[in-house]
Design a protein around this nucleic acid. Structure first.
Lengths: 201, 201
DNA sequence: TTATTCATTGAATAAACATTCAATCAAAAT
DNA sequence: ATTTTGATTGAATGTTTATTCAATGAATAA
């Protein structure tokens, strides 16, 4: 409809966003193979044909989402690491912010679920697999550095930093997945229980 | 080939087992929708037609696996609870046995992954969903009782037993999924780190 | 007005796949 | 030997679904 260059560009962005938002929800809930292009298009309020005007295939939509997921997650992790606060405080804040994201049903929680499912799944697009291989270590590495820093500062428990970082993220993943499976009844546990694994008391 | 009644029955059991074993691996790796009946049949060493002689549909195979998963997991949890040992010892043993299962790539680990993915996924067969709804609380309830028992015995940390049980299982789930996504590089962390969440030191 | 440019649609196409089925085959019973 | 029984096969069927495409519409430029 619009030909005004700026408006046009903005509408295209909105279309793209509508596709990605709805695809994220559907892919996270049902997986790549079980999600129908027709569903995504309908949920995004457009015809199937138009969706193909914006993305070349279902796989391309999926891959775009995987890219976004890591941009957001790894960006947040990097921002956390850069904060001018103690390592122990970084860990506390990480748990609290991740919990807040899960509680509010923000995209973040859904992204976590998408990544967890995609990482474990064979048969995802090669490009998506490449992104996962390249990016998925980042949060673990960042958390391992924070742990090491905290051990130097004397506030974080001793133990292999990589193991502690692994447990940090797998615990979060486990909660995100459990929440997805139990949206109705899910209540977040006390963050202090998790922090016990990492912080001296 | 065989008409001898016992041999016949045994071969049928082997066929069924071959179907279920291979379907478990494939469903856990790719999900229900992305797994092809042709793949399962080929992996199980039989024609597609024969598979339909044993199960009416792909969904029926899937549902059978979900049933088995809970039979095994909930049975193991119940057996653990019944052991004549202290609550703290039960928790230690649970972590160790689950870790052993994960380490050895036994079925148990794959079942955990299957259940985690299936629970979070919409679009699984109604009967499978019903089994999940009915059975999935069991391990949480058992662990909550063990925690409560341990709190009475003074060896388990204070805190809402249900929250502690939730964290116990979501942490295990998170590790199982991470392992599935990183078979090559995965190394189990020190069990004591997890036990810190639950046991007094 | 008319022409042009793209977003947009919905139906057509073609491939993938679950499921069915008619035909074998091998053992055991007669 | 012949018949019966049930496992087994592989090709045929029909449905579902991703993808393509020819046609439409709406805004600007000429």
């Amino acid at each position: 409809m619009p030909r005004n260059p700026e408006q046009n560009e903005q509408m295209k962005e909105e279309r793209r966003a509508a596709i990605l938002d709805n695809a994220l929800r559907l892919f996270a809930a049902k997986g790549l193979a079980a999600t129908r292009i027709a569903e995504i298009a309908k949920a995004a309020g457009m015809s199937q044909g138009l969706l193909y005007h914006y993305y070349r295939s279902k796989e391309e939509v999926f891959t775009a989402l995987i890219g976004n997921a890591f941009t957001i997650m790894n960006g947040a992790a990097a921002a956390l690491e850069a904060l001018p606060i103690s390592a122990a405080e970084k860990i506390r804040r990480a748990v609290n912010e991740l919990f807040t994201g899960l509680e509010r049903s923000e995209h973040t929680g859904t992204y976590h679920l998408l990544i967890a499912a995609a990482s474990a799944s064979e048969g995802i697009p090669a490009e998506a697999r490449a992104i996962i291989t390249r990016e998925s270590r980042v949060p673990y590495e960042i958390m391992a550095r924070i742990v090491k820093e905290g051990q130097v500062q004397g506030t974080v428990r001793s133990g292999d930093p990589e193991q502690l970082a692994l447990l940090f993220w797998t615990t979060i993943k486990g909660l995100a997945i459990h929440r997805a499976a139990n949206r109705r009844t899910f209540r977040l546990p006390d963050p202090d229980i998790i922090l016990r694994m990492f912080l001296k008391e």
